[in-house]
């Protein structure tokens, strides 16, 4: 009977993990800004030199504002993704907000690899594919180049949509974010998500070290996200009026001081 109990428990847990995988994958697909079919139909057209120069000749303020708008649009979809993850809405609202403030941009960076052309080193932005030089007017070449490096390296792993979905959920449900009220509950959710990710990687017969590679990506994502905040702070010092009057309110809530 002891064996029965053990096997029932492990079966229940497998069923639970399968259920979580399905929910997270479905949520990811439902809340991706561009669906699989749309991606296939996309012309993957790059900006021509003249267009690149137009972006480069924009003022720093205008280019920052444009990027803030695009990031905010992407983040709204990430909020919807979070809401549909099993257990997220059961967290207290403080913790929901803490997780989104800390993790939503990181999920946008993960999702970026769906809209990234590795060969051209270009990302879908404002209607066409843009290389790092399109973003020169922002005045943060180092951060842009790191974001592109990250996208290149994530793309090289060729993650499936299921794997991307669970990796995104794993990042979003990080239990070590500051100011969480109920760390334990978030930790439980994250552990379940990690099991689901492991399970999917096994099912997809992925190489042994992939989970370790993804864990390393978590620290890269944190560094990108905090560097974005630093760049924004520096920008605000000079252009506080532009930020106050022209930046999307949600962007300010997420990244403002």
């Amino acid at each position: 009977s002891n064996e029965d109990t053990v096997s029932t428990a492990s079966m229940a847990s497998t069923a639970e993990i399968d259920h979580l995988s399905q929910i997270v994958s479905r949520s990811h697909l439902e809340t991706c800004q561009y669906l699989g079919e749309e991606l296939q139909q996309m012309s993957w057209q790059s900006f021509v030199q003249e267009e690149v120069e137009t972006y480069q000749s924009k003022t720093q303020e205008v280019m920052w504002q444009l990027c803030a708008v695009k990031i905010t649009e992407a983040i709204q979809y990430v909020v919807e993704f979070a809401k549909r993850i099993d257990g997220f809405m059961e967290l207290c609202q403080n913790d929901q907000i803490v997780l989104l403030k800390a993790g939503s941009l990181e999920v946008v960076f993960i999702r970026m690899c769906r809209l990234f052309d590795s060969q051209k080193n270009a990302v879908y932005f404002d209607g066409k594919f843009a290389g790092p030089d399109v973003f020169r007017a922002l005045g943060c070449d180092d951060l842009i180049s790191s974001v592109f490096d990250f996208a290149q390296s994530l793309c090289s792993l060729h993650l499936t949509e299921d794997e991307l979905a669970l990796f995104s959920a794993f990042v979003l449900l990080s239990a070590d974010r500051s100011w969480l009220q109920d760390k334990l509950q978030v930790e439980k959710l994250q552990q379940k998500t990690q099991l689901a990710l492991q399970h999917v990687l096994q099912k997809n017969q992925r190489e042994e070290g992939l989970l370790t590679k993804l864990r390393y990506k978590v620290s890269v994502l944190r560094s990108l996200s905090s560097r974005h905040t630093e760049k924004l702070s520096a920008f605000r010092v000079v252009h506080s009026d532009i930020v106050r009057t022209h930046f999307p309110p949600l962007y300010k809530e997420l990244f403002g001081a």
């Binding site: 709204q76 929901q96 403030k101 809530e253």
Partner: peptide, 20 residues
Amino acid sequence: KEKHKILHQLLQNSTSPVDL
């Protein structure tokens, strides 16, 4: 709450502002 007004709204809305 005032500080995260929009996030609160997005989290509480059953219908999202995003046209999914």
